[in-house]
């Protein structure tokens, strides 16, 4: 993945110089290990700021919503699927975009790496599929594939689905069982499920980082901010916290691409994808639908077909 950056910079520079776009949305180097900051590049000389490595987990489609400029955007597999969703939902026009596709081999799970080491991680570098982690008094080399974000390790759309430029050859897609963990929960009795989610959400502080990092969550007024009527209380009551996560997941049904931005953004490391993934699985099993794969097909929740499943209706 490291080799991509020269190509990314070269393409970006060309696009800006030829006035094909007004700006490029990409990542610049962060001030912390395993962190990159999304950034906006408007002039050819700033192109050098752009970076690309395995810490670009934030979904850049999030920064497109309702923009009017012509934009060049760097997109890995999940970003591109969310760009498709944005286009379908009229949040941006295809003509405005030049999509610089990046075949992706997964992002590093920073929560997990942080908790793996006692001391503080000071530097993380990657080379040939290996990650070198350095701290004050330790240094360790790990296989990148062993420390991927969970959503990346079960990702089956690593290559961008739409793109105008491509920075390298497409990578091989994985053949994995995507829903092993969801099935585990499905097999639990109700009471156990309830307790599982109670425990999962017990540290939530309702900072809404998951919502705001999500490219799907662009409603002008979120249901948790509605006050007439007020659907959900605003305190840190566990039921209200659960209502928030549950309804947010519902709003993402048939739209979520499992990009993992929510989980990555969470300061307290909650895997709220256990909600969205169940709905994703249901959409796939019942409607054969995966979000963001095609610009021409309408999502299952705004179409009706006679063969839609209806056995839950009496």
């Amino acid at each position: 993945m490291l080799g991509y950056i020269d190509k990314i910079r070269q393409i970006s520079k060309g696009l800006i110089e030829d006035k094909k776009v007004d700006m490029i949305i990409g990542f610049k180097k962060g001030t912390m290990p395993m962190m990159n900051e999304p950034c906006l590049v408007k002039s050819p000389k700033d192109v050098e700021k752009l970076v690309w490595d395995s810490n670009c987990g934030i979904n850049l489609a999030n920064y497109l919503t309702d923009r009017k400029e012509r934009i060049g955007i760097i997109a890995k597999g999940c970003d591109s699927r969310n760009i498709v969703t944005h286009i379908i939902e009229n949040k941006i026009k295809r003509e405005q975009l030049v999509i610089i596709g990046v075949p992706c081999t997964g992002m590093i799970d920073k929560h997990r790496l942080t908790s793996m080491f006692e001391g503080e991680i000071e530097q993380v570098t990657e080379q040939n599929g290996n990650i070198t982690i350095k701290g004050e008094d330790f240094e360790e080399i790990l296989k990148k594939n062993d420390v991927l974000q969970q959503n990346c390790s079960v990702c089956i759309h690593r290559n961008p689905v739409v793109y105008d430029e491509l920075v390298s050859d497409l990578v091989e897609e994985q053949d994995v069982d995507r829903y092993e963990d969801v099935r585990k929960i499905e097999a639990m009795p109700s009471e156990k499920k309830w307790n599982y989610f109670d425990d999962l959400l017990s540290t939530c502080i309702r900072c809404y980082a998951c919502r705001n990092a999500c490219p799907l969550c662009y409603c002008p007024t979120c249901f948790v901010d509605e006050s007439r009527p007020q659907w959900v209380g605003k305190s840190d009551d566990s039921i209200d916290i659960r209502t928030f996560h549950f309804l947010r997941a519902y709003h993402c049904a048939g739209r979520c691409t499992d990009c993992g931005a929510c989980e990555r953004a969470c300061p307290v490391g909650i895997n709220m994808r256990m909600f969205t993934r169940k709905l994703e699985k249901d959409c796939f099993e019942q409607y054969g639908w995966e979000a963001g794969l095609s610009l021409d097909e309408r999502p299952p929740l705004d179409t009706y077909k006679p063969e839609d499943p209806d056995d839950f209706i009496k």
């Binding site: 249901f223 659907w231 959900v232 039921i239 209502t243 549950f246 309804l247």
Partner: peptide, 10 residues
């Protein structure tokens, strides 16, 4: 909307 159902249970 699912929030109606949740509001009722709440």
């Amino acid at each position: 909307s699912p929030k109606f159902a949740l509001a009722a249970l709440r």
